[in-house]
Nucleic acid binder design. Sequence first.
DNA 1: CTAGACAGCGGAGTACGCTCCAAGGTCAAG
DNA 2: CTTGACCTTGGAGCGTACTCCGCTGTCTAG
Lengths: 119, 119
Amino acid sequence: MRIGELSARTGLSKDTLRFYERIGLLDGDRLPNGYRDFPPETVVWLRYVRTAQTLGFTLAEIGRHGEELRDAPDSAAALSALFEDKIRVVDARMAELTALRADLTSRVGTGCPLRADRT
Amino acid sequence: MRIGELSARTGLSKDTLRFYERIGLLDGDRLPNGYRDFPPETVVWLRYVRTAQTLGFTLAEIGRHGEELRDAPDSAAALSALFEDKIRVVDARMAELTALRADLTSRVGTGCPLRADRT
DNA sequence: CTAGACAGCGGAGTACGCTCCAAGGTCAAG
DNA sequence: CTTGACCTTGGAGCGTACTCCGCTGTCTAG
């Protein structure tokens, strides 16, 4: 698929996709005319990239993970390990959020000032 | 308290604190000699800023919320509303994470490739 | 053969959130 | 009166993640 279609399917701009290719997040085959040609799985990969990003991973990290996966001798085991790592990250983030939520909840209804400037 | 102490107490660099003042996140009184002088509550405010940041709020948004709070006629009610908003954000993030976690879990043990490039 | 959609490239620009630096002022201790 | 810790300012620079631009090449339909 060419860049326009990938853009339409993922909601990412063509510029963003070209940018992702430049930083190694996407590796594009080329058609004989020089146009980029992406396999359909790229859509899945990009969906993953976006969720990983919302998890707080940088594009560089996401790219590194992708390479680790690709280079792993035992792909299934490597994948499982990586997923387990990410699950741990997710769990840690959720714990943080849970604590923050409790903190916020406890403040609802109280007049506890966060910012006493100019008071 | 002067900037050095605030820096030590919050773990934020002096440069960061000065930067926060420039963008209006902090408003500093000054001592007669020109040194910044922060009230103790600033520590609490900065703790809040950092947690709000991990929630994905930009500094601009955080600053705006701070002003809304300050300008609210009924401070306690405004605070409660703001906290409830934030709780909703937290809940949404947690839902995302839960979904992602389930997705990851379901992939552990399967060889399901995320990225089929160069395969 | 031309119009128009689509693609390519390189490079500049933007927003955010810092981070560092140089040059200099303030102040308490020795 | 100097040393040293602490403070001031303005401005430059950086990393991340885009975003835009101008110019050019490709392909398909009429």
